[in-house]
Design a binder for these strands. Structure first.
Length: 761
DNA sequence: GAGCACTGC
């Protein structure tokens, strides 16, 4: 089928296209958009933004731009925007909305436009493309802004940026006065940042009648956005995709991995040429499926067993070079003129939104993915294999129709699709720990969080948990007001516990070490590699970095060793490889560390932040680092429970946990703090470091308050620790009194000084 | 004696 047929199919599915691009709530308007080079072939032949003559390439690209479906909607879009503050635009894949709509606005005279993207690569690559389309240098009139990379200048009129970045900007510019128009793209993905931005913008729009907002989404769920921004007109533009036939299984399958492998083998054996994309849930499952598909294809009866098939895994932790393989051409036929080869790609959800693979004609959809869930009662986020939503199923199917008509095999029944799958995936804000979100909102000046206008309000318990956490950390006062500490914490791109620990480390003179540990904990990928074939050597390589007191200190040692290799002029990548370390992860830790160091230096001027711990003796350093960490993680502490089999109970919650097998502690101390609670078949705590009981009652007496502490051995130990502390405090006070008296005696002899020691009663 | 879906600041 050709392009036109695909468009026709898309048009049939489009309820608005038949009569008008105008949708519900569309109002007549007298506004006439200004004419522009988009209407006239040459305009005055000069670029309005740079004053330079337009290149020939510009006009060539202009021709293709005019053919994009969204171009038809331009005049209506602009007139809507002249009459309304908010517009909801639905445009499916291939409509051109992401590249064209921002240009329509610039062209119509909006001189400061922001367009958000959920992902960095998207912001960057779209900005590059649009700079070419507009015939301007990147970083000039068109720029982008993403973490670690800001390519925008005062002359930038159109900026693509991540949603998280716009949220950051809002912290210093709460009314977003910098912008005349804001476009929230991919709003249907409902990322945490986009959801917070929508709530925020609702208020900003009231304060700034001149500001325009376009919410762009890919699904017909757009009615929800329209309701949220009451009265906003809704427009829809068709996509440019090919039809995809849907096939369901007649009966539910027992095991979706088995079923997926069988389906792929059937396609390879009997269907016309074309690549296959299989959606599975995780790395382990994918590697297993790949192996079985290879084996089963080889076991097919001739001639199918001779077909050229490349079976490739795809998930984000895969090294980039291996990821790249999915974009290479399918293998050639085994014999000249024989059956064309094909790629079979077994992928996680990366292939649903983040990566687009052209040439896929068959999609095998297992109907599952790993999703984050948050349990506020247990205060634990975990990943669960869960059924996908209908929106997600449609997105997956669409991946089969990017270059020609395709087929999607859904490994579930049609009635399951209709009645068991949810319409849309729960937005992230309903599935997350909101500690950071609450901190950000407070920083943005939102006083009443319970009544903040979230599109989907989180459970009150989740908000309570977040408020409680921030109060314990000292970021919020008992009245719920942001403290000075809280303001500083909000500036740091870290979980609140880690921000608190990092800021505490400045006062303890060990911020250099805490910057490193924070950066290492921010690296999502595992630092220590452990290839299956090479486990023994990988483990012994790791042991060289291990610190007996715990994993946090091991991370510190590892990073320190890593940076010294570079300083000594060694080959860092080679060194990482030899030591079974993930050089990509270490590199990203290094960028995070630099960013954090800049921020801390700005927040705490006059301190030697980042360079304060070099001269400390090792034992003193280790103690102070652990005390700094504990200032943020005193709520993530477990106590050893005696008996034969050593186990741990988390404080207060009394959850039974075990040290994660990857943990490097050489003994089983009474008290440990942990970075992460992992919920799988058993409860594990991961990244664990020994702490002294005495530190708990010293650093966090407000949390280790025995009047509301559950009974148990931890409480008994704490009682002893408090008694000891009392005695020590009494001793210290007596000593101090003695010293004071001696000094007073001396001073009397010498005569009085101007600034005597202030006596407190 | 286990395991990292995917983003983002």
């Amino acid at each position: 089928m050709d392009d036109a047929a695909g468009d026709a199919a898309a048009a049939r599915d489009n309820p608005y296209l038949a009569d008008s691009l105008f949708a519900r709530n569309a109002r007549p308007t007298t506004h006439t958009p200004t004419t522009s080079v988009l209407d006239n072939d040459k305009g005055n032949g000069h670029n309005a933004l740079t004053g330079k003559p337009l290149s020939d390439g510009y006009f060539a690209i202009l021709e293709t731009r005019r053919k994009l479906p969204v171009h038809e909607a331009r005049a209506e879009l602009l007139s809507h925007l002249a009459a309304h503050q908010v517009l909801v635009l639905v445009g499916e894949t291939g409509s051109g909305k992401t590249t064209q709509v921002p240009q329509f606005l610039v062209d119509a005279g909006y001189n400061a436009v922001a367009c958000t993207q959920p992902r960095r690569v998207a912001a960057l690559s779209v900005a590059k493309r649009v700079a070419v389309e507009m015939d301007v240098p990147l970083g000039g009139p068109v720029g982008y802004s993403i973490r670690f990379d800001d390519r925008s200048t005062p002359e930038t009129v159109l900026k693509y940026l991540t949603d998280g970045m716009l949220l950051r900007e809002a912290m210093s510019d709460p009314d977003l006065r910098h912008y005349a128009a804001i476009i929230l793209d991919e709003a249907h993905e409902r990322t945490l940042s986009t959801d917070v931005l929508m709530g925020l913008l609702k208020d900003v729009l009231r304060r700034r009648p001149d500001l325009k907002l376009i919410v762009m989404s890919a699904t017909l769920d757009a009615g929800k956005f329209q309701d949220y921004f009451a009265g906003a007109p809704l427009m829809q533009v068709p996509g440019r995709v090919f039809p995809v036939g849907i096939k369901y299984t007649p009966r539910p399958v027992d095991n979706y991995v088995d079923a997926a492998v069988e389906q792929v083998v059937r396609i390879v054996a009997a269907e016309p040429p074309g690549d296959v994309l299989v959606f599975l849930t995780g790395e382990e499952e994918i590697e297993e499926a790949c192996k079985r598909i290879r084996d089963d294809v080889r076991a097919l009866p001739p001639p199918a067993c001779t077909y050229a098939v490349d079976v490739l895994p795809l998930y984000s932790s895969l090294p980039p070079a291996k990821q790249q393989r999915v974009f290479e051409r399918a293998p050639p036929p085994r014999t000249p003129g024989g059956v064309p080869g094909r790629k079979v790609i077994c992928s996680t959800n990366v292939a649903e939104t983040s990566l687009t693979i052209d040439g896929v004609v068959y999609v095998v959809d297992t109907g599952f993915s790993k999703q984050k869930v948050y349990n506020p009662r247990a205060r634990v986020e975990s990943l669960l294999v869960s059924p996908i939503s209908r929106a997600s199923a449609k997105q997956r199917a669409g991946r089969a129709g990017r270059t020609r008509p395709g087929t999607c095999y859904r490994l579930y029944t049609e009635s399951a699709f209709a009645s068991e799958l949810k319409e849309a995936t729960y937005p992230e804000i309903l599935r997350s720990n909101l500690g950071n979100v609450v901190l950000q909102l407070k920083k943005l000046g939102v006083v009443d969080l319970v009544h903040f206008d979230f599109m989907d309000p989180p459970a009150p318990e989740t908000l309570m948990r977040a408020l409680e956490l921030l109060n314990y950390l000292g970021a919020l006062s008992d009245d719920g007001e942001l403290t000075k500490l809280g303001e500083h914490m909000a500036e740091l791109p870290l979980p609140p516990e880690l921000s608190a620990a990092l800021l505490a480390s400045v006062d303890l003179g060990v911020s250099g070490a805490l910057l490193t540990i924070s950066a290492m904990l921010s690296a999502t990928a595992n630092i220590f590699l452990r290839p299956k074939a090479d486990r023994v050597r990988a483990d012994s390589a790791r042991r060289a970095f291990e610190h007996p007191d715990g994993d946090h200190l091991t991370l510190l040692r590892t990073f320190t060793a890593y940076t010294s290799v570079g300083v000594d002029g060694g080959d860092v990548n080679k060194w990482c490889w030899e030591n079974y370390l993930n050089s990509r992860a270490l590199q990203s830790a290094s960028s995070v560390r630099s960013q954090l160091a800049r921020l801390v230096a700005r927040l705490r001027p006059g301190t030697r932040a980042g360079a304060d711990d070099a001269a400390l003796p090792a034992v003193e350093l280790d103690d102070r680092v652990r005390r700094a960490l504990l200032s943020g993680f005193f709520m993530q502490v477990a106590h050893r429970e005696g008996g034969k089999a050593v186990g741990y109970l988390t404080v207060k919650d009394h959850q039974k946990v075990a040290l994660h097998p990857g943990c490097g502690l050489s003994r089983s101390p009474d008290w440990v703090m942990y970075n992460e609670f992992v919920l799988t078949k058993r409860n594990f705590i991961r990244t664990v470091t020994e702490v002294r009981g005495a530190w708990l009652v010293e650093i966090a007496p407000h949390y280790y308050d025995l009047s509301n502490f559950p009974e148990g051995t931890a409480k008994e130990d704490l009682k002893v620790l408090y008694k000891r502390k009392e005695r020590k405090d009494a001793r210290d006070a007596a000593e101090q009194r003695e010293r004071r008296e001696k000094r007073a005696h001396k001073d009397k002899g010498k005569g009085k000084k101007k600034h005597g020691s202030s006596s407190r009663s």
